[in-house]
Write a protein that binds this DNA or RNA. Structure first.
Lengths: 346, 346
DNA sequence: GTGAAAGCGCTAACAA
DNA sequence: TTGTTAGCGCTTTCAC
């Protein structure tokens, strides 16, 4: 590829001239070459090569009305999940899928409430063809903004305003949280455990409530004293475990809503000299890479394919954007399966 | 803001018509309104408001040749740093600064060697005005690609091909690794420690070598048996500590090249019943949020302002892009200061 | 200070 | 199959 003297890249016009064809034909070739005779295709391609031609994106967007870019929107409370392996995997999946479709990833980080206006303007400005947003908390203003802008969007994680999984017209991708939780609790029960406690996540996230629902699916008559709440962090898991132990010293199993909390719980269990899984069996959720395998004992947990979820989000969006495809404008939501991974903690 | 019937946003033409002015005047107002009489400014602004006008980015880019976007390029080996709080802070800083200048962040993740071509094409395509890339390892092909594309770029971390800090024309932002290391070791020495060991990072990263150089600045005659290498991870820090202890049971202080390794070292020290800082004083580097304060004892360490570095990278790039500013095309590099944070480990 | 007009580089009817 | 032509929506000389 020839070096470019700054500010003067060759245009399609130049390519056409060099190849001895019209701009239209050159354009056709550059865009796949359908319906152009082979000799001409070759000529144009050669010219492209010799000139080091690269299409001007702005000009193309101006006429096609497609930007070839997708926004990934991360709301403020979620910003810390940047340092969450969870999120990084999801992003990676998204990136891979977008890249495979020659689509750019524009990262939109909301730093504070004042940023909503900026996002609204950005989306309204048609800078991107669509957006990917992450599971929001109750009363998050973002969905409204997104909807108003008319930007096709796929959510990651079931949005809290959809009343039930699979519900509504909002497309989203989520793990089968409820089913996974059910499997976890059922597994503990099959082990013969009778007093299975649950450390739930924050009640304003659907991943928490769905997992709690799964727990209840199996333990219809679950004693409320067996249920506590954490914030999906190690420390909150430890605190929850202490609470649980104080209230119900007789418990013989714990299902924690994520691995982080499970590892906190494990710490407390060990501190108190309670054997795992001997006296108390423990199951986590997520199968987080750097956590589940490294605890002592390693965690039995529910695995979900996070990177795959990212890919799926992107794929769903892209498919929805592709007018050729027969799909409706709003692709349906997808619930990805979970699997129980047996390790040593239960 | 009025709802937009999809696909038909108001144009500047419409605004001009409504305000009863020419398109040119409307454009001037939208772009700051310099040299337009107040009454007209008001009229246009009102029209903009009533119509919910948002400029068409593609059209604007086509004529101005500026995209208003900056790429953040993350090379493959660095991808995992996504889950590194370090990186997330840097990104946050970048994002804030870019946002403040109405510039978009396009994330370019390199998934594998095959992606270099894609990046090259992307940069050559003029999709972005500039790029931000992260400290590369030796023989990384990225810099060459970037240079060839002519994309103005600021690096995060001193690139390994600059022979010395402050060297060369490549603009970068980096912490004063060497100075920080010097301060750490000097501090240990002032404490009266005589046999100060060093757990260095991987030798192909300048942050490692610069810190090692700082260590040597103070301990000119450092015995090689006092120096080991880790990979900036907790486990490698633990392993390095064991090695050190086996070789030099007489050591009375350790300077670890980052907090992660320091915490690994701390674990080993505790396992072996060696008191910290009583018998062995320990200093880390980075002052990583979720690490340094939470160890037992909390780490004395060298703090660097990571988010600030991100902001700085963006600011440097933006300034370089701004042709109005008198600055040269390549802004100079910046070395950010470090400070010693005294906690309990030394 | 304001407007008229010329493009920026490309795609997409429409003709040939 | 190929070429001609008309814009996409905006900024920016250049006259007025």
């Amino acid at each position: 590829m020839p070096e470019q003297s700054p500010g003067s890249r060759p245009t399609l016009e130049a390519v056409a001239a060099r190849a001895g064809v019209s701009r239209a034909t050159a354009s056709r070739v550059v865009n796949g070459g359908a319906g152009v005779r082979q000799p001409l295709v070759d000529k144009v391609l050669r010219a492209v090569d010799e000139l080091g031609y690269v299409p001007n994106h702005a000009a193309r967007t101006l006429v096609t009305r497609r930007t070839g870019a997708v926004a990934v929107i991360i709301a403020e409370p979620e910003i810390r999940i940047f340092s969450d392996p969870f999120f990084s995997q999801q992003i990676r999946g998204i990136s891979k899928e977008l890249t495979a479709h020659d689509t750019q990833l524009v990262l939109l980080l909301l730093e504070g409430p004042g940023d909503f206006g900026r996002i609204a303007r950005y989306l309204a400005g048609g800078h991107v063809d669509g957006a990917l947003a992450f599971s929001l908390h109750i009363d998050d203003p973002l969905p409204a903004i997104i909807r108003r802008s008319g930007t096709p969007t796929v959510y990651g994680g079931r949005p809290s305003w959809t009343s039930a999984p699979g519900d509504q017209g909002v497309p989203y991708v989520d793990a089968d949280n409820r089913g996974g939780a059910r499997a976890a609790v059922q597994y503990l029960r099959d082990l013969g455990r009778e007093r299975i406690a649950h450390i739930a996540g924050p009640p304003d996230q659907t991943s928490s409530t769905d997992r709690l629902d799964g727990y209840r699916d199996v333990l219809l008559d679950a004693d409320p004293s067996l249920i506590t709440e954490g914030e999906f962090t190690v420390d909150s898991g430890a605190r929850a475990m202490r609470e649980l132990l104080d209230r119900r010293p007789d418990l013989d199993a714990v299902f924690a809503a994520n691995d982080l909390m499970a590892s906190g719980a494990l710490r407390v269990l060990r501190e108190r000299g309670i054997s795992v899984p001997g006296e108390v069996a423990l199951v986590g959720f997520d199968d987080m890479e750097s956590i589940a395998e490294d605890t002592d004992p390693p965690l039995t947990t529910i695995r979900q394919d996070v990177e795959g979820q990212g890919r799926l989000m992107a794929r769903l969006l892209l498919r929805g954007l592709d007018k050729d495809s027969a799909e409706a404008r709003s692709p349906a939501s997808v619930i990805t399966p979970t699997t129980l991974v047996r390790r040593a903690s239960a």
